[in-house]
Write a protein that binds this DNA or RNA. Sequence first.
DNA 1: TAATGTTTCCC
DNA 2: CGGGAAACATT
Length: 874
Amino acid sequence: MLTENINLYIQQPVQIDMSSYPNILTPPSSSEDSPQSTLYNSPPSCYGIQDSAYILPQTSLAFDFDGATQATAPYLRIVEQPIDRFRFRYKSEMTGTHGSLCGQTSDRSRKQTYPTIELCNFNKRALVRCSIYQHNTKEDHRPHAHRLIKKQGKGEVDDPHDAYVTPEEGYTYVFHSMGIIHTAKKNLVPELIRKKGQLKKEEIARLEGKVRDLTQKEEIEIKGLAESESKSINLNVVCLRFDAFYETNGILLPICPPVYSHSINNLKSALTGELKIVRMDHCTSPAKGGREIFILVERVTKKNIKVKFYELDDEDNIVWEDYGKFSDLDVHHQYAIVFKTPPYKDLTIKSPVKVFIELERPSDRARSEAKEFTYTVSSNIYKPGSKRARPSYDSSSYDTSLASDELPVPINNLCLENSPTGLLDDVQLEVTSAELQQAMRNINSDEFQRIFNDFGQDYSLATDAPNEFKKSVIKSRVVTSTKTSNFRSAKSRPYCQRSDSIEETAMAKQAVLELQNFIKTHPSDEKAVNMLCHYLKEDNKTNALHVSIRQNELMDVMFLLKMIYVWKQHELLNVRSDLYETPLHIATYLNSEEIVANLIVCKASVCVGDSEMNTPLHVAVISNASIAIFEKLFSSEDKTFVDMENNEGNTALNIAIENGNLKALKLLCLNGADINKQHKKNGYTPLRFAIEKQNVDIVKYILQHKDLQALVEDFQDINPLQAAINKDNSELVDVITQYMKQNNYVNVEIKNEVEDYSDDDFEEKFSIKLEQISSEELREMYTNVKNFTPACLDDISQILDQSGTWQNLADLLDLGHLMRSGLCDSKNSPTKLLLKLAIETNGDSVLQIRDFLENLDETQAVEIIDNMVRTQFM
DNA sequence: TAATGTTTCCC
DNA sequence: CGGGAAACATT
């Protein structure tokens, strides 16, 4: 019987450990020539898993198979690993069907896969087996007390699951419809005894050549092992073991060493369950760290959880990492963690740094999905109550007695960041009045032009005329300018938290005067540039421009802007005050349309953040600025600022929604604000924020947006529409349900309970989401489907090829003869061929085929086809 | 007791 | 199906 020329190794374990696995022994007929003392060589690496128990005894080969080398030794290859997280169900939960153990690369919608094994280098029909084992890193494998069940027909059977592989099927086998039953603690020992007994019997059959019952001694031995093992067994991790056997006379001879899948973790356990950050109260921290953050998480164990921060470079390498600081007292009931952020590696960052935050479970080094987090620049501003001295403006900084030849030396390294042309080298120093005029012609602001044309006149006024006269001129202009009517008083403003001191006002006036005087006497002197920079360059300090804007001294502002423009010192416009606001922030806040307009013309940056990283656009929304202000801001050449986030992670759009500012919302949307941008704290989209705010007008407006993705889920996997219909707000619910009807969102799942509202009216409102597609409707849909999708074809072919039902189907379709007449190429799927013939040649309908399959009890295949039709129809 | 772990139940 | 949570058990 064993004389066939087949590729079969008979191996012998080094140690006989009946508790670990069925021993693989030489059959009785050849056992005498395989003594234990034989020299062994190493197993070929192609075994996929190292297992010292399986060593090929060279002298004990059962067969000489034409001098086959190790390269041609048979081995098992796992084609598709099982999914690594799966819910183990208790027996009491196994009523109805739950998901089956699918393959690792399984994809919900595209292609379902299942654990798949291939027997390589073998050329005869063989038995492959799948069973459930304990997952050990050590090379010590024992059956697991959990049960690996497989649905077969209506019932289900326990492992081991045996199946044949043949050359026709490429020596592969797909194990589908399997589930894992969590054996209750009290049943661990009996279950282990049962499995060990089974394996022992197989081993005896191999050794003794026939099947017999276990002796009492053997049973007691098994019982002892089961009891001790039950105490150490890990109930939340299992793996699959695959064997290959050559069957002869009812005895199973191993063809090669078994292989083990990677671990399968119980999705339900806090020890192995999925880690997830569900929400955080803040998504930023100053670079110095220490900010207290609350995060909500899926179930964790307090002694076994860390919060990791890390930064990636462009190639996704970790360039920095640290951990959130907390004790296990800071873990609230397994579902929330309060921690302090670690300091970033560089405490003096100049721009925000994007990092990631994730949960890490030390016990199995599992990690959650990472969420974005931002380290912010410390604005270093004066805060009331802090010990830091308030910036002073002593007169020496603005020394008016500077003679023209004593001006500060040219600021050669006036390196104005972000501005390639910011260096003095690039500045045209010899400015003639003709050039000034030329420069001004390029400015397309009428207002600016007008003021500039008045420059000479003002100039003379400013220098020669008495102060009273000058003031009255300026005043009259301010009053006559209609655009300044919206001007907000600088007093009582929440945003610019202080008004200017007398000294500051004086300083500003002085600076302007000084410059004007200098220019008058030295119209094209390069030193004017130095002077200008001298007054306006220093960041984090209130300068003349800030003050002039705050006080709405239009003439002074325009003068300074002109100087900056002509000498191309645009970066001076982005210098921040002691409150960390740029001129544009201040002008925007004060609703000074004219100044905003001219700042933009002069290329003031719209991207600079204030102490809270609010851009001027944020400020415009916060202060409910006029439409004109928004328009000016959007007229900036820089278009990247629309979606910038402040230190709370809010975009201007978020603030508009939070403030119920529909006007700002519209303006932002019209100017390209991202309507689907998720907040870093919780994944909310603008629509979701509007819904949470229950502002129906705003919700309505957002729902009309052409680019809206209404179903973007938050970190808790709730989409905005689900959130909306759970609100106790009938107006809002009406708007949402109407939207859903219009967009055919029939199958939006409602994850939260609605049963609190038992009145019929309420129920009815939701009926459109809850209703199932009736079978009539489904059949209606079938009439529009002429063929199978490739993905669907793949899936059902796999099932029908496996079960062999394709033959029955062929008969029902009157194609049985064709299929058997040699058309059927064993390399290809017979089902695929059959379905192609049926539809393309016979003209059978998909519905007809579906119904035949239903008659043949191929419920899984039927379901796949139904799903295909459903998804195609929508 | 309070917190955590296990099993059952339910939509 | 897949998920959540109540109920029960243990530490």
